[in-house]
Simulated scan of single mutants.
Amino acid sequence: MNLREHLFWSTLLAVSLYPRRPFAAASLIAGGVLIDLDHLVLYISRTGDWSMSGALHYNRYRNLFPDRHDNRPRYGSLRSWLHQPLLVLPPLWMLAYRRAWLQPLVIGITLHLVLDHLPLPFIWAAYWRSGGRCARCGTANHVEVYRRPCPSFRKMRWIVLCRRCADKRLWYTENSAHV
């Protein structure tokens, strides 16, 4: 999900849960959006670019359909351990149980992680459909499920690729074969 979608759903939940508590509503919205600051930190560490405009520009083009001459770098997943619900949520909920003022913030973080992990059934379906092998070269070594453009439908599709095939620029071009 992108920033606008997280902001929309966090605001909707905040207004519905805390209509007369603006601090609690703001905390929920902050928890639902600001957890994505880890993407900025990872972007800086991978590129060396400290500008916010560079990070926002990268975020705009990274999921667009590249054309034949697009050779801009794509850095893969910019998710840190903060986006692992089983690591983050249990300690946060234990802390929020003891400190009631933290509950809206933890609700916002929980909402964010739920929204980020909604596509998991599609990811697992693509993995099982492929038999755990790369759709391009057939290897079973170091495969991951990626979202890639499908030029014939101009949609994104979930596809299993090894790291070598995922990094090839040919995979992004209009005349490459997509599964």
Rank of each mutant, 00 (worst) to 15 (best):
A140F: 00
D167R: 06
P73Q: 06
R62Y: 05
I109V: 14
Y146S: 07
L118Y: 04
A135E: 14
V145S: 02
P149E: 06
P104H: 01
I107M: 07
P73F: 01
L86P: 02
L78C: 04
E174S: 12
L118C: 10
P90I: 14
F122N: 13
R79I: 11
R62P: 01
R154L: 10
W93H: 06
L113K: 04
W158D: 15
H83P: 11
V145G: 03
Y127V: 05
E144T: 14
R148Y: 00
F153W: 06
L120W: 04
Y172A: 13
L102I: 04
W124F: 12
P90R: 06
R62F: 07
H117L: 08
H142V: 14
P119L: 05
C134E: 04
L87M: 03
R129W: 04
R72N: 04
D67A: 10
C150Q: 10
S176Y: 03
L56S: 08
R163Y: 01
C162A: 09
W81T: 15
L105G: 02
P151V: 10
G108R: 00
W81K: 07
R68K: 07
I123E: 10
H178W: 06
W101M: 09
D116H: 06
R148I: 14
P151K: 00
Q103R: 13
C162V: 13
